[in-house]
Design a protein around this nucleic acid. Structure first.
Lengths: 230, 230
DNA sequence: ATCTCAAATCTTGCATATTGTATCCTCGCC
DNA sequence: GGCGAGGATACAATATGCAAGATTTGAGAT
């Protein structure tokens, strides 16, 4: 690998381990490190300009986050997901994010509602043709505001654990302009439910929103032929 | 600490890190390592008969599991829970275990139903006076069977992350014979719902079961005076 | 007697060395 | 010519060593 890890921005993090963890996580999530790729400690250490120890620690953390699989004595690889797994994951995500939306609806501040509306506006203006990553990020931002408004550190952690999945498995979604429109709609509806504090409705919409994303994703993956694991 | 870590049974685990992890986790969960206690790498390493490296890795894993807190350059401590935190945790547990019960009801095998019934029988025979730990473990076993029957690795992982809380915070529950009777009842009802495959009912009962546990626990903690964090 | 500042000590964080194990390759044997 | 044993190799797992940072303790001053 040709030093795809080191990006422009300076390493803000205090400890080398955390730095390594962030860099590797980012690389996995946005696809620079492809699922299934072998992660050799020494190689990563060399690229990151540190010794193997902090790399080991980073891999350990990523493993417990579920982004990395590690076979004893054989090293670590970027986790691959089977279709079943994705199904499972998205159902959990629907459950948890639905709950988050319900909680958020009765706690959210006016400021956060405004933030949601701004996000919707930005979302409207984005074109899939422009940059897929922007869409993904805006979507993430929207969901994050709700998650924060739910005001439960534990819930936040759990959801993160469930939604942090390599981009490969997500970007399919946004290729379709109709899907983007539908998401736009759901985001607007969610924002409305939040504004008026309708918790039940918020939960319902969020669940459906996530489950539709799952359906679409699974459809894409299946039609992209029978190879379940990517 | 006077070697409270090394228990009788031989270390089955292959790697030293995993072994350390299991031993320390067990010690935390069943209270031999009290919440708030400082965990010094060298001390643990000495007691476990290994070097600091695997201990470090174990602590890292336990940290991501939420059982230990670690301040950079200041070391790790056994995590303490505030009352708010417990509330939060139990609500999530209700959500997740409720979902698990729902899934399990429509998938569970006859063998697992039998296992649930046996667990109920054993539970009936236990007296709080005997050994609190037995009660806690039997309860854990019951919930685990359902969790397994839900047949979702991810869900299992999430629940584990949420229910693995030092025993200190749980044992209160069983001090009261009435609470034990009520739990017994819910376990029986859950088993019945599982047997007939009533998913909605199973979810409902499980949620109520967990939420009542929360209520009782919070009541106990609050009446045990205002010291929220133990 | 108490407060403050500094040195000594303790502890973590990272690096490097060593060991152990699994895989692969090669050479000899069948 | 194919197959298996033994060695070479690559890599992870653990140990050890060293430096930087935090905490504590003690001496001096107020």
């Amino acid at each position: 690998m040709g030093n795809i890890l080191v990006e422009g921005h300076a390493p803000i993090s205090r400890s080398a381990s955390e730095g390594a963890c962030e860099v590797i996580r980012a690389a996995i999530v946005d696809g620079r490190l492809a699922p299934g790729l072998r992660l050799k400690e020494e190689e990563l250490a060399r690229e990151l300009g540190m010794s193997r120890t902090p790399v080991r620690e980073a891999l350990l953390i990523l493993q417990s986050e579920g982004l990395v699989e590690s076979i004893p004595r054989r090293g670590a690889t970027v986790r691959t997901y089977a279709v079943d797994d994705l199904d499972d994951t998205y159902q959990l995500r629907a459950l948890l994010e639905g709950y988050a939306a319900r909680r958020a609806a009765s706690r959210i501040s006016a400021g956060d509602v405004a933030r949601l509306e701004e996000s919707c506006d930005r979302f409207d203006r984005l074109r899939p043709a422009d940059d897929l990553l922007d869409l993904v990020k805006e979507n993430l931002f929207f969901h994050n505001v709700i998650l924060d408004a739910a005001d439960s550190v534990r819930l936040h952690g759990l959801v993160r654990k469930v939604i942090e999945i390599p981009l490969v498995y997500k970007s399919f979604y946004w290729y379709s302009p109709e899907q983007k429109l539908i998401s736009q709609h759901y985001h607007r509806q969610l924002t409305r439910a939040m504004r008026v504090g309708d918790a039940e409705r918020a939960e319902l919409i969020m669940k459906e929103h996530v489950l539709e994303a799952r359906d679409f994703l699974l459809m894409q993956l299946q039609s992209a032929d029978g190879r379940g694991a990517a």
